[in-house]
Design a protein around this nucleic acid. Structure first.
Length: 614
RNA sequence: GGUUCCGUAGCUCAGCUGGAUAGAGCAACAGAUUUCUAAUCUGUGGGUCACAGGUUCGAAUCCUGUCGGGAUCACCA
C-alpha cells in the first residue's frame, strides 16, 4: 500500500527531523486506532520516551504537529497517554481506495520463482476418508493456495499408503468372505466397500481372539505373562499384537499375503491392484466433492524401498553409524533428541528412512525449495527427527522444510475411536451439511425458482462453505471440538454468513445500471461505514502474507469474517442503489464490488466457493 | 517420568512479533424490514485471560515454576 507507506515514511522522517533519531523499518509500527478513540491510525510512542527523556505528551504533540504541517493528508491529531492518534482527510481514503481498486490482483504477490511442494491427505487404502482427513485436506489445500498467492510455484502431492499389513487384511477378508462381490454389484462406493472388508477382518479376528482367550492355551498365556494387577480383559487388550503375530490363524494368513505381495506373486498383485483401484475411485469422488486435486502422487509401494541410498550417503558422511549387528543409527542426542534407527539389522528400512528417501526423490523430481508436510501433531517428533537428519545430510532444501502440524479433532462425546465406531465418515458428513443447506434454503425460497442442477450446485457450495469454514477457522495447532450440530450452522460466524455478504453484493451489481459504474472519483464525502470497510480492505495483503509465513489459513478465515461483518453493517446502515448522489452511488457500488472480490479471493484461499445467489 | 502442544465468557473460538476499557459467534432476553436478499442489523446480561512469581512505563501476549488436559518417547507406519 504505497499511500500508507508514504505516511509511515513521513512520520519516520518527522522523528528524524524533530529528534535526530533514525528508526529502522517496522521499529515503530502504525496501528489502526481503536474504535473508542477518535483518529484513524496510531503511533505508539512510548519507546521514544526513554531515550528522549521527555514526556509522552510533549513528544506526541511535537510529532503530531509536525505531521499536521508536513503531511497534507493528515488533518488532525490527538495525544492520549503515549498514543499519537492521527486523523486523515477524505482525500487520503479516496486515494487508498483507488489504489486498492486499481489492483486487479489485490492481495496476490508476484511470482518469486520458488517451488514448494505441499503434501496433504495421504490416506491408507484400507479405509474411507474420515473427519481427520477432512481437516488435513482443508489445511493442506488452503495452505497451498495461500503460498501460491504469496508467489510460490506449488506442487500438490500426497503419499498413498497402498501397501502393508492393513491392506492385506482387507484383501484377505474379501478373498475369504467376499464371494466375488464388487462395488458395482453391491452399489457401494469403492473405498467404503474395501473398508467394509477391513472391518470384517477385524471382526473375524476378534472372534478368533476371543475363542483363544478362553482356550487352555490362552489361559496359560494369561497366567504366565500377566502383570500383578492385571485382569484378563486388560491383559488381552495389551496382548493383541503379540497374539496376531504369534498365534492367530488369520494373522498368519495376512502376513503370508504380505510376503506374497513382496515376492510379487501375480495373483496377489492382481487382487491388490483391483481392490486399490476401487479405493481410488471412491477417493476421487470425495476429493471432487471437497474441491481438491493433486499434481503428483507418490505411492508407498514405490517409495517404501527408497532410502537405501540415503543410508549409504549418511554412512559415508558420518551422519550415521553402524552397530555390530549391522543395524544403522543416527545419534541426535546433541540436539536433545534420541538415537534413532534408520536401517534394521535385517537390512530393511524403517519409516524415517522411507521419508528420507522420498524427500530426496521429490527433490530429484521437482527441484523444490520448500516442502510442507500436512500431518497430525502426533507425528511432531518424527518430523523433528526427519528434518534434522535431512539437514545433516546436507539437503539443499533443508531450511525450507515445514511440518504443518494440526491437532486432532474431538467430538462432544470425546475422542474419535474407530473401534467404538465413533469415527465421522467424510462422505456422510458432506451429505449431511448439504442436506442442511437444502433444508435451510427451502425455508427461504430465494433460489426455489432456479433449475434443479443449478440449485444443487449452490446448495453444495453453501453446505461445504459451512463445513469448511467451521473447521478452518480454528488455528491448526489447536485441538478442536467438532460438534456436528454446530458445523451445519449457517448464521453468525459461519461460511454461509460470509457467502451471504458476497451474494448481497452480486445482487446489487445485477441491479446497478452500468453507466453508473463510472465517475465515482467525484465522491469526496466518505462516511464512517465506508471508511471502516476501506480499512478492512487495506489489511488483506498483510493477512495473506502473514498466513503464508505462518502457514496458518485460520487467519484468512477470520479476516474474511471480519470483512463480511463490516460489509453487512455497511449494507444495513447505508443506502447503496438509491444513495443521495450519483457519485455516492457509484462509489458504493464500486466499493461493494471490491469487497466482493476480496471476499471471493479470501474464500478461494480457503478452498471455499462463492454462490452468486442463495 | 523425559520432551512437547494446549488452557481466554455457560459452549465454540478470535486476540499472542508486548500497548489504551480483553473481542466475536452460539445459547438467553429485548428490538429493527411499506426501500438494495432478515442466512442480516441493533441492544442487554455474561471474564480471577488455569494458578503463582518475574521482566517492563505497560503482560492474555515474553520468561520461570505449579496445576489440569492431549500427544509422543518401537529394529510399527
Amino acid at each position: 500500500m504505497a499511500v500508507l507507506k508514504d505516511i509511515k515514511d513521513r512520520f519516520y522522517n518527522g522523528v528524524h527531523v524533530c529528534y535526530d533519531i533514525v528508526l529502522n523499518d517496522g521499529e515503530l509500527p502504525m496501528n489502526e486506532t481503536r474504535h473508542e478513540f477518535s483518529g484513524d491510525y496510531t503511533f505508539v510512542i512510548f519507546s521514544l520516551v526513554k531515550q528522549l527523556k521527555k514526556s509522552p505528551k510533549e513528544i506526541g504533540d511535537t510529532l503530531g504537529q509536525w505531521m499536521l504541517s508536513n503531511e497534507p493528508l493528515v488533518i488532525g491529531f490527538e495525544v492520549i497517554q503515549g498514543f499519537l492518534n492521527l486523523t486523515f482527510s477524505n482525500e487520503f481514503w479516496n486515494r487508498i481506495f483507488f489504489e486498492i481498486n486499481d489492483n486487479q490482483n489485490y492481495g496476490y504477490f508476484p511470482t518469486n520463482g520458488k517451488k514448494v511442494l505441499v503434501e496433504f491427505s495421504s490416506p491408507n487404502t484400507n479405509k474411507p476418508l474420515h473427519l481427520g482427513h477432512v481437516r488435513n485436506i482443508l489445511l493442506g489445500w488452503s495452505c497451498s493456495k495461500i503460498l501460491e498467492a504469496n508467489g510460490y510455484n506449488i506442487i500438490r502431492t500426497q503419499v498413498i499408503n497402498d501397501r502393508g499389513i492393513a491392506v492385506c487384511k482387507s484383501m484377505l477378508a474379501w478373498k475369504k468372505f467376499g464371494n466375488g462381490a464388487t462395488p458395482k454389484l453391491t452399489s457401494t462406493k469403492g473405498d467404503h466397500f474395501v473398508g467394509d472388508y477391513y472391518v470384517l477382518f477385524e471382526k473375524a479376528f476378534m472372534e478368533e481372539y476371543s475363542v483363544f482367550q478362553h482356550s487352555k492355551e490362552g489361559i496359560a498365556v494369561y497366567e504366565s505373562h500377566r502383570k500383578d494387577t492385571q485382569d484378563s480383559v486388560a491383559f488381552f487388550k495389551e496382548y493383541k499384537n503379540k497374539y496376531f503375530n504369534e498365534y492367530s490363524q488369520l494373522g498368519a494368513e495376512a502376513k503370508q499375503m504380505l510376503l506374497k505381495w513382496e515376492a510379487n506373486d501375480p495373483e496377489t498383485i492382481a487382487l491388490w491392484k483391483k481392490m486399490n483401484q476401487w479405493v481410488y475411485d471412491g477417493f476421487s469422488t470425495t476429493y471432487e466433492k471437497l474441491g481438491v486435486h493433486f499434481d503428483s502422487l507418490y505411492y508407498e509401494s514405490d517409495t517404501y524401498l527408497l532410502g537405501k541410498k540415503a543410508v549409504e550417503e549418511g554412512l559415508s558422511k558420518n551422519v550415521f553409524y553402524k552397530e555390530d549387528d549391522g543395524s544403522v543409527w543416527v545419534n541426535l542426542e546433541d540436539v536433545g533428541m534420541d538415537r534413532k534407527i534408520v536401517l534394521r539389522s535385517d537390512g530393511t528400512s524403517v519409516y524415517v528412512t522411507q521419508d528420507i528417501g522420498t524427500a530426496q526423490q521429490r527433490y530429484e523430481d521437482f527441484g523444490i525449495d520448500k516442502m510442507v508436510y500436512t500431518v497430525a501433531d502426533e507425528q511432531d517428533y518424527h518430523f523433528k527427527v526427519l528434518f534434522e537428519i535431512l539437514k545433516r545430510l546436507g539437503a539443499p532444501y533443508a531450511d525450507g522444510l515445514f511440518h504443518l502440524s494440526y491437532g486432532m479433532i474431538d467430538l462432544p462425546t470425546g475422542k474419535m475411536k474407530s473401534r467404538e465406531g465413533t469415527v465421522v465418515d467424510a462422505d456422510d458428513l458432506i451429505d449431511e451439511v448439504v442436506q442442511e443447506a437444502r433444508d435451510m434454503s427451502a425455508e427461504r425460497g430465494e433460489i426455489a425458482s432456479l433449475p434443479e442442477n443449478e440449485k444443487e450446485l449452490i446448495l453444495h457450495k453453501i453446505g461445504m462453505g459451512a463445513l469448511k469454514f467451521f473447521i478452518i477457522k480454528v488455528q491448526p495447532k489447536k485441538r478442536m471440538i467438532f460438534d456436528p450440530k454446530e458445523s451445519v450452522d449457517m448464521q453468525g460466524q459461519t461460511g454461509p454468513y460470509i457467502q451471504n455478504a458476497y451474494v448481497r453484493i452480486q445482487s446489487i451489481k445485477r441491479k446497478a445500471s452500468e453507466n453508473l459504474m463510472v465517475g465515482f472519483d467525484g465522491y469526496k464525502e466518505i462516511n464512517e461505514q465506508e471508511k471502516s470497510l476501506i480499512k478492512q480492505l487495506v489489511n488483506f495483503p498483510d493477512v495473506v502474507a502473514e498466513a503464508g509465513t505462518l502457514y496458518d489459513p485460520s487467519s484468512v478465515a477470520n479476516y474474511a469474517y471480519a470483512l463480511s461483518k463490516e460489509f453487512h453493517r455497511f449494507y444495513h446502515d447505508v443506502r447503496i442503489l438509491n444513495a443521495e448522489t450519483d457519485a455516492a452511488k457509484s462509489f458504493r457500488i464500486q466499493l461493494s464490488t471490491k469487497v466482493g472480490e476480496v471476499l471471493k479471493s479470501s474464500f478461494d484461499l480457503l478452498g471455499i466457493e462463492m454462490p452468486d445467489r442463495m
